[in-house]
Simulated scan of single mutants.
Amino acid sequence: MAAATRGPRAMRAAAALLAAAAAVAAVGGTASAVLPLLRDGRRRAYVWSPIDEMSDEWLGFDANKWRDTNPRWFGRAPSVFKAENVRVRRGKLQLKSRRDIRYEYPPNPPGMPVEPRVYGNWTTSFVESRNLATYGFFQTKAKPGDGVISSSFWASWNTPTDWTEIDVFELGGGAPGGPGPGFPFIMFMNMHVFRRTGTNFTPSTVLSQPGNYVYSEPLANNYHVYGLDWDESSIVWYFNGRPVRSTENVYHQQALAFKFDSETMPNWFGLPEPTWRSATFKINYIRAWSREEVDTAGRAHRSVPRTVPATGEAAISPYALQRAPMPNSPEVAGLAEPVPRGGWSSLPKNGVRAVGRTLSYFGPVVV
């Protein structure tokens, strides 16, 4: 009896392996085999075309698509980006943040005293696309690190004439305090204009348009699907296939690089405890599509631009901010007290005060 059933079982196992192999081959590191997760009915109105240059299933790290550190920015002090913290394991992109007291941190910016050191104690991670995209639907399945250090998915590009940014999410997976139920429950979304041809915005007069979505449990508990639908007229943010924020697109027509990173946010999420060791931001995939509208007769209209190589980039000082400033952060209003270990709610009302000095070297610098 055992010998008689071994053949069919082997055949079923082989069929399962072939099906799995076909599924992997169909995805093949691109979005070609799948459509966006959408639960508002909008998918039926479009013809979707994958943008392979901006998509990855993380079967390995493709250095032709991504860079694993930022050549134009050390990172948000006191942490710095470290390429060795970026790895692909078990089909996931993993961005590690860690206490790293032996790392050779950069010196203080020119014009500052040698001590105390601005950078130190923590190394973080950064991944950036080597192509720029103008419009499209961008979706990622991710799980933030369960720590004070941020986990973010965002898009920006900085040139002498234009610098805009769209934050799909910024998460403080294990940060103490925060509004409402607290930082671990909140998906922060934002739009920034630092400089834009034809406007009066400059890095010293930044336009920021924040928004947030509060989930029912800490976001670091599970993987969730986050999306951005961006075209010339509107920008829509998605969480698990449902729109959670939408706005008119007035200024964001610039081609942008898409990025995942972790940063210390001393004046927002606070700094880790001295005993804290590490946390890992995990990304299951990133998928991107351009789309064409379809009328009732089934005819497609308006082809959306796809991607261009990231060429002609400005030379940026590694001490520049290179990232949207946080509310009441040193980049905006002078150095404020870091968030206390227990969050702002742990302090008496008279225990919060601003420190009256500025850190001009944090400003964006185009050279």
Rank of each mutant, 00 (worst) to 15 (best):
R12K: 11
A14D: 06
A16K: 07
A16V: 09
A20L: 05
V24Y: 03
G28E: 03
A33T: 01
V34W: 01
D40F: 08
Y46E: 01
D52I: 00
E53L: 03
F61W: 01
D62E: 09
A63T: 08
K65L: 01
G75P: 07
R76K: 02
V86G: 00
Y103H: 14
Y103M: 02
Y105H: 07
N108Q: 06
P109D: 00
P113Y: 06
P116Y: 04
V118D: 06
T124I: 03
T124H: 02
V127F: 07
L132S: 00
T134H: 12
D146R: 14
V148S: 05
I149E: 10
W154R: 03
V168N: 03
E170A: 08
E170F: 07
G174S: 11
A175D: 03
P176G: 14
P179N: 12
P179H: 12
G182N: 05
R195S: 07
R195Y: 01
R196K: 15
T199K: 08
F201S: 04
S204A: 14
T205V: 12
E217M: 06
A220Q: 13
N221G: 09
L228C: 13
W230G: 03
W230Q: 13
D231M: 02
E232T: 07
V236F: 03
E248Q: 13
N249T: 10
Q254A: 13
F258S: 00
E263M: 08
T264V: 09
E273C: 05
E273I: 00
W276D: 14
R277Q: 15
Y285I: 00
A288F: 08
R291E: 06
V294K: 10
G298L: 08
H301K: 04
G312D: 05
A314S: 14
I316P: 06
Y319W: 15
A320W: 00
Q322E: 15
A324K: 01
A324N: 13
P330F: 01
E331Y: 03
A333W: 11
P338F: 03
S345W: 03
A354F: 15
G356L: 10
T358L: 12
Y361Q: 12
Y361I: 02
P364M: 14
V366I: 15
V367I: 13
V367M: 12
